[in-house]
């Protein structure tokens, strides 16, 4: 029995660029989110009648409350970005329930998001301190610590990406290990039976679902939430806002 943990498979080559399954799934998820948004925003009225408008308003106000309480009232314009990150991350992780390879189990996706957040952190630092002040902040408290300051800045996107990546990949690896173990257990018990009877996967039924609830539902949704919380906290610290 072989257990393979590999990166994303390359599906086809488009003008010299390798398109992996991760990219296809990510674009599908983006399309699904787009269609959902169009559906939720169709026929808006001042007095909500349709259930979907009430749902949309509930989502918008709760995200704005979350962003407003975590960052500040002045940063509520961030809520679309934060909610987009949250929805993309959670839908990507949940796609493993449909036996796809979740895009969040590829480091490239998460490094892309966290580098985006990193650029925003730098932008807000420069905005709040000025360019000279930003460069000077690396030499504080004393000039000897400059390399460590640069390292601790670079650690932000790396740790954000690796935290989410590690959580999702640990789920994928442990699930595949359990599936392999249960399959060999089934063949051990039923293997001596004749014909198709030896192929019945009795042990693979049910038990992996318990693991799936923790790794696919709880852990991935929690990581999506934490990614957004950390984004908000870092940007708030960079922008130096008063509560």
């Amino acid at each position: 029995m072989n257990i393979e943990v590999t990166g994303a498979r390359i599906l086809f080559n488009f003008c010299g660029v390798n398109i992996t399954e991760i990219q296809v799934i990510s674009w599908t998820i983006i399309f699904i989110v787009f269609v959902l948004c169009r559906w939720l925003c169709r026929g808006l009225k001042v007095k909500p009648e349709a259930k979907r408008q009430i749902m949309a308003e509930y989502i918008v106000t709760s995200v704005q409350n979350l962003v407003g309480s975590t960052m500040s009232k002045a940063f509520e314009f961030f809520s679309p970005f934060i909610f987009a990150l949250m929805v993309l991350s959670s839908l990507s992780s949940l796609s493993s329930l449909l036996t796809f390879k979740p895009p969040t189990s590829d480091l490239n996706t998460l490094l892309g998001w966290s580098i985006l957040v990193f650029l925003m952190i730098i932008y807000y630092k420069i905005k709040s301190m000025g360019f000279g002040g930003y460069l000077k902040s690396y030499t504080e408290p004393i000039a000897v610590l400059t390399p460590f300051n640069i390292l601790s800045d670079l650690a932000v996107p790396v740790s954000m990406a690796f935290r989410h990546f590690g959580n999702v990949v640990s789920g994928v690896v442990i699930s595949s290990l359990v599936y392999g173990a249960l399959a060999s257990l089934s063949t051990c018990v039923l293997g001596s039976l004749p014909g198709i009877l030896s192929q019945i996967p009795i042990f693979q039924l049910g038990l992996p679902a318990v693991l799936s609830i923790y790794f696919d539902l709880f852990s991935s949704l929690l990581q999506a939430f934490i990614f957004c919380m950390l984004t908000m906290v870092y940007i708030k610290m960079a922008a130096n806002v008063e509560q």
Partner: peptide, 22 residues
């Protein structure tokens, strides 16, 4: 939950290294 997820980071680093090695 937030603090736990942040504290998990070092363990995750170890896990990533283990995955790479395996």
């Amino acid at each position: 939950l937030m603090g736990c997820a942040v504290a998990e980071t070092t363990g995750i680093y170890g896990f990533v290294v283990a995955i790479l090695l395996l």
